[in-house]
Write a protein that binds this DNA or RNA. Structure first.
Lengths: 205, 205
DNA sequence: CGTACATTGCACACGGCTGTGCAGTTGCAC
DNA sequence: GTGCAACTGCACAGCCGTGTGCAATGTACG
């Protein structure tokens, strides 16, 4: 064991990657999954995991950093160069959807692990960006809601979680999920259902 | 200790009630709260809790049964004698909102505790009632959505969670929360925002 | 006051998870 | 094939949570 730090051996890299992938899936199922569960699911012994990550927190930390980065990138890409808040929100949802599992992991972990309250603050840039988008839409009349923009942002977030669960349970075909999510989010923000459907249909080529 | 089962002593009853109330709040904060956390929060020693409930599962089971009963009652009361699906959904949300914390507890526990998968099945009557309501609304045109009724039910559920969190974080005044929740739910089900607002305003006295 | 019961404050055994150490084995690479 | 790094298997200590037993203390009620 000892020195696994050289970082050019193919086997070690592949294992590390696989451990991270499996850990994401496993922690998604159960945010309190033990190191042993993760290790076995990755086809590896617990001791090996400790060869790649000094402790549980480090493993989760890596996962969190990757997720935050991927999420922020997708969200920013969705907004890029779009001035209309309605279309921007639709594009954001479509862009974020493919990596939504990572978002879900972040929130699940942020609720459980006390040490990880840093997640929320690392996530605030993305969230305040959403709030700003919603606020602009409310101001210029594209959106309509009984809620202030920050509360509406919570609702939008939860809608995505609800749809992830629906897809998980086979209630929505995975292929349609992204478009349905975008349409539903727009609708809940007060965009007329027909307009939301045509707009999303147009964007998603 | 031994016989605390006679059940007519005022002190014992008061303690039992307090333990249940505190346990609800504590498990809401952390679904994995230990017996010691619950006991101390109730101003009691751990050993005393085991005098009222044989084990952790029994305590949670009592909480679950009460919550299911309260929730089903509120939901049924909201639908009672209302034939229009849109108005019925609005009334359901308004009726369920005051006891929403119990609903939240159920779902939080159902996700964590493996032994408690019975929660989901004990909850299905309420859920299928919601689905039926949404389906009728979609059929007769009161609702409009990109989603099938079962998936829309998930979304409605999650919207309520999102708003509970928003209230918790001070983003929505508690007094307005119920009306805002009902309005938002109707909106996300495709009811035009203006119609949703006036309908909810009319129902809430 | 005295009785009956609730509550407390220890004690313990048991099990699970974490993080670490060390000897042995496997597999990739040169 | 030889060697080095990664992987394995086991053993260990420590911590935390559960559930139980028992003696002592508190408290209501006749």
């Amino acid at each position: 064991m000892a020195a696994m730090t050289t970082g050019s051996t193919s086997r070690a890299d592949a294992n590390r990657r696989r451990i991270l992938d499996v850990a994401l899936a496993e922690l998604l199922r159960d945010p309190d999954a033990s190191m042993d569960q993760i290790a076995r699911a990755a086809g590896v012994v617990r001791r090996t995991v400790y060869g790649h990550f000094p402790n549980r927190e480090a493993l989760i930390g890596t996962l969190v950093d990757d997720a935050v980065q991927a999420l922020a990138a997708a969200h920013a890409a969705g907004r890029a160069g779009v001035e209309d808040p309605v279309e921007a929100l639709a594009r954001c949802v479509l862009a974020v959807w493919p990596i939504a599992d990572r978002y879900r992991l972040l929130v699940a972990l942020a609720q459980r692990t006390v040490t990880m309250q840093g997640i929320r603050e690392r996530l605030t840039p993305v969230r305040s960006s959403s709030v700003e988008l919603l606020q602009r839409g409310l101001d210029q009349g594209g959106f309509r809601s009984a809620l202030p923009a920050p509360a509406l942002a919570y609702v939008v977030e939860q809608i995505l979680f609800g749809l992830m669960e629906a897809v998980n349970d086979g209630l929505v075909p995975p292929g349609e999920a992204a478009r349905a999510a975008a349409t539903t989010v727009l609708t809940s923000a007060g965009v007329p259902a027909s307009r939301a459907a045509t707009l999303v249909g147009r964007i998603a080529e």
